[in-house]
Design a protein around this nucleic acid. Structure first.
Lengths: 211, 211
DNA sequence: CTAAATTCTGGCCGTGCAGTCAAAAAGTAG
DNA sequence: CTACTTTTTGACTGCACGGCCAGAATTTAG
């Protein structure tokens, strides 16, 4: 026999439930972005949404599940935005630049979401202490980067280097852009992204073959 | 009238107090590295040190002060270890490589300290939510990197690029090495560092001037 | 030795947290 | 209106935390 509360995970959701869930996720994003992950308690999120705390428990199995859905939503928005731009590129060099600039461009219109994403990336851990949602463990993004670098080396566009270290470094640079760009209030995100694209272009490109 | 407990900050410290403080700092490092920053409560640190919780309050003005001293100690150990190697270098290119390899070499013998440092860097915030000890406010290390890059550009060894973005990226790569290299057990730290040095050498070096 | 200063103990307090629940309210259908 | 389901409320539980402190233990000074 099922517990009375909490709609099951599989059944189709009523309109009102879908709306509530979206509202709660939106509030979570705003609270995390505004007050930091540590201060984003269920009570605060509920207050920001103008509902009582129990409602969150009613609609989400727990705080972790809520955060998971926040990440999933924001992350899929990024992929959705950047993937089409990348499809159009032919060379690995262009792919590399498009990936970095695409992420930055999407961020520009979604500061709040991405601030929250960075907060969650940095703070949420598994019980064993390893990062839970950080991109270093997100195979999806890692595979995209590996693909770019592998392609570049196959084409001879890129010099030989350790693909894993390069991809990790690339991810770290993006993470850093996520996590800390708001700490430089005078800093221009797109300029940062362009510089980053330059840095990785220089870091990867094949040596000049003299004649 | 002074509070009865807590030796003042300025007086010279007795042997026993110095020893206790060192013991507490060491325990804090081990607990943070082992369980993560979030789980490093005063109670856990005290238990690990085999003393009662009150002792920590007696010797340190508060948890933040304790963390501050942990950071100061570990950080100064790194600088102490790497600075002499850097002194011996003449070119910016050599400085760059020495900085990365020196940090990695020091890390090799101080895994616990550096895991703890990374944890604190990532998690400790000011009340307003901005990072407290991260690279964005740690001017010391940032200035070292800025110095290297500025020197390289002045010498014409390095191409023109945004020094701040390059330094941030450099720092992110090091942070990443701090934070995650243990997640790849098969991975050789020194090989990672050599690759990293290569990456930044390629990223920074001046374009070939064809005679 | 005694007296005073230093150091330590262990329990207590208030706070904030995630999650629970009985009951109230709102919505829906006949 | 009535009977039923879905949704919401807000008080409550139990827990972990940082900080506090009266008094005990220990060390030092005279």
């Amino acid at each position: 026999m099922q517990s009375k509360s909490r709609p099951s995970g599989q059944k189709s959701r009523s309109f009102i439930e879908t709306a509530r869930r979206a509202q709660i996720i939106a509030s979570a994003i705003e609270v995390i972005a505004g007050h930091g992950f540590a201060k984003a308690s269920l009570a605060r999120i509920a207050e920001h949404a103008g509902i009582s705390k129990g409602v969150i428990s009613y609609h989400f199995a727990g705080k972790d599940k809520l955060m998971e859905e926040v990440v999933t939503q924001v992350y899929s928005e990024i992929v959705e935005a950047v993937s089409p731009m990348m499809m159009a590129q032919k060379s690995a060099t262009a792919l590399l630049r498009t990936q970095i600039l695409g992420v930055a461009q999407h961020m520009r219109g979604h500061r709040t979401q991405l601030k929250a994403l960075g907060e969650i990336f940095i703070h949420l851990r598994r019980p064993d202490g390893t990062p839970r949602y950080g991109i270093t463990t997100s195979e999806e993004l890692f595979q995209v980067l590996e693909h770019i670098y592998r392609l570049g080396q196959r084409n001879g566009e890129f010099r030989p280097f350790d693909i894993r270290v390069m991809a990790i470094t690339h991810q770290a640079a993006l993470d850093n852009m996520f996590a800390y760009w708001s700490a430089f209030p005078e800093h221009d995100l797109e300029a940062h992204a362009r510089e980053l694209a330059d840095i990785f272009e220089h870091a990867t490109r094949a040596e000049e073959t003299p004649s």
